[in-house]
Design a protein around this nucleic acid. Structure first.
Lengths: 339, 339
DNA sequence: TCATATATCTTAATGCATTAAGTTGCCAGT
DNA sequence: ACTGGCAACTTAATGCATTAAGATATATGA
């Protein structure tokens, strides 16, 4: 015989399908005795509850939440910040008995899953502009993390303030400051490491951080020169090393390196040490994000700790809550030996 | 007005629902002219194809593939081997225009998603025995990786042979061999680092590798003593260090360390170097898996390379193929400075 | 005792689409 | 001119369940 369905079970028990459905979904709609009879009969018949696909079609929600990563999954799993975030999301979704569908940000057709999921948690601004357009029009719930979408709730930290705080903690009058920024130039424009325009007036997280750095510098009477503001297309070792070498080989050499990720900062420190620079005496380095690896590395890195796993949990909770406000999470400035 | 449906679009165009459905799914079933008319009308009405949830209910397949990890997602993203695997799966699934649902191996209710997905790709034997039982009975396709389930197709390497090969490459007559094994004891039995029974006759990947090591040792006239066979509950730094310290502090000290993962091997090497041992002169170390990190580390590690990302792709392909045979992937023995 | 409220279950409409089988019209072959 | 065959559509059954509204029966209150 085929798999039992609500209907077949109902017939077998001589009751209506509504009653079986209620036995599973609304216990208050039928007598306790009948409910138990039904449940045990189902167990015997091998019927383990209403078909989820049918349920999803009828109810319009599946319990599946899609997580969209700004980039490829590649980036996701190799980047500790992103994977921490994912972990947090997964943990909270599990608490909510929901499921996590990993959706590559490089794909460009939301339609293929929109009907399956209850909504989208988007981590980082997708590089794919089509995807952004689709997210704007998406009929399901959309929550953004580390970037904004008009009219959609978001979860983030105050990047400007955090950057400002971190810069203020290390800058001294007379410092020559270099910034290693992440994606300061539009994806389409630049896939290579290079200097970035000083004033781009964009809305990315990186530009907010840059604003914070500049506010701090202004306050100390420092100015950022264009050849010391660098754009990295990716937060990886190769890019960071290229940029760090370029920046550190300039003369006069910078005395402070403000890096927009810990991964960048770590690589930059390695380059600096290889060049014979003493940290923090000759060069102070600040990172961003806060990853475990920096604690094992010496000198330990000063950084803005974002606690990405908690961020992930917060995102999943905010997604569930249904509220449409923008949530600002707290961060923590931690000073290490690098400053 | 509400979202358009197949029905409403059909009515608007004055054709049957079957024709609209065919326009999207079976172009050969209607004239080109009508099809184009329908498609452009749909675009105007804002109808972007048949509802996937309904489609899934009707067709019985959704294009969603669940990946079950042996452990928590935690392990998954922190372990380079596992995350490489996941990447490979994701890549191949994207090629197939399928979706990836990440399912935590710690959850124990397959029913909650079985109806949604086309099947399961299980990476590593789940610790949760309930889950294994459910996988055995699962009506959907189940493919296992790095472990076996009766009657289910699997993807793996020949662990016994690979272990044998790696051992043969480094062992010399007279060697005193220590083995740092991963989960040689049942999860329930032991969550702590300690020696493992020499002959356990289990079917895990680790036991197969142990078999390979022992075959090589036998061939060289060596025997494995019980105090040099260690069980690690996890493949992480802490466990590896504990075990390595215990093993290396014995006298006479081992001359070869056979490790069942590169992560373990790397930690063990650090311990050995910290103890003042010279590698490979006083101690040769072999790993398993093959991860990038070992290439940057000195001494570079000799290991069995599994190419986990390709393994992931192969798994996704095998899942798709529908074939029910067990697939043996190739591996590669790479000798580094550690032996 | 009659009307009303409550508990318990059923009816039937609904969600959205797929697909085997049936219809219709047109053309080729003989 | 008759018929088989094919192209292009339609009909209607089906997948599996949810839920508002309706039907009974029993209990409660005046």
């Amino acid at each position: 015989m085929n798999k039992p369905t609500l209907k077949s079970v109902a017939k077998a028990l001589g009751v209506s399908t509504a009653t079986i459905s209620n036995a599973f979904n609304r216990p208050d709609q039928l007598s306790v005795a009948l409910r138990e009879k039904i449940l045990s009969a189902c167990a015997e018949l091998g019927y383990d509850g209403p078909n989820k696909a049918a349920q999803s079609l009828r109810k319009g929600c599946s319990g599946i939440v899609a997580v969209i990563l700004s980039d490829s999954l590649e980036y996701m799993v190799s980047d500790p910040v992103a994977s921490q975030f994912l972990q947090g999301v997964a943990r909270e979704l599990e608490r909510q008995s929901k499921h996590l569908l990993l959706y590559s940000g490089s794909a460009d057709n939301l339609d293929s899953i929109t009907d399956f999921v209850d909504g989208f948690i988007c981590y980082g601004a997708p590089r794919n502009l089509k995807l952004i357009e689709q997210l704007k029009r998406c009929p399901k719930r959309v929550l953004t993390v580390d970037f904004d979408l008009p009219g959609r709730p978001s979860v983030n930290i105050d990047n400007e303030q955090a950057a400002y705080d971190s810069a203020m903690a290390v800058l001294k009058p007379g410092d020559r400051v270099a910034v290693l920024g992440l994606r300061l130039i539009d994806a389409a424009d630049s896939r290579t490491v290079g200097t970035a325009p000083l004033w781009d007036n964009q809305s990315s997280v990186s530009h907010r951080r840059l604003d914070g750095y500049q506010r701090a510098m202004q306050q100390l009477g420092l100015t950022l020169s264009n050849e010391l503001l660098w754009h990295l297309p990716e937060s990886n070792q190769a890019c960071a090393e290229t940029a760090a070498k370029a920046v550190l080989s300039q003369s006069p050499a910078p005395t402070v390196l403000l890096c927009m990720s810990d991964l960048i900062a770590l690589s930059a420190m390695r380059v600096a040490l290889a060049l014979g620079l003493r940290i923090p005496e000759q060069l102070r380095v600040v990172g961003f994000d806060g990853i475990e690896e920096t604690l094992r590395y010496h000198p330990t890195l000063s950084s803005v700790w974002q606690f990405s796993d908690q961020k992930g949990e917060a995102a999943a909770r905010a997604f569930q809550s249904g509220q449409d406000d923008n949530q600002l999470l707290s961060y923590e400035l931690r000073l290490g030996e690098s400053s």
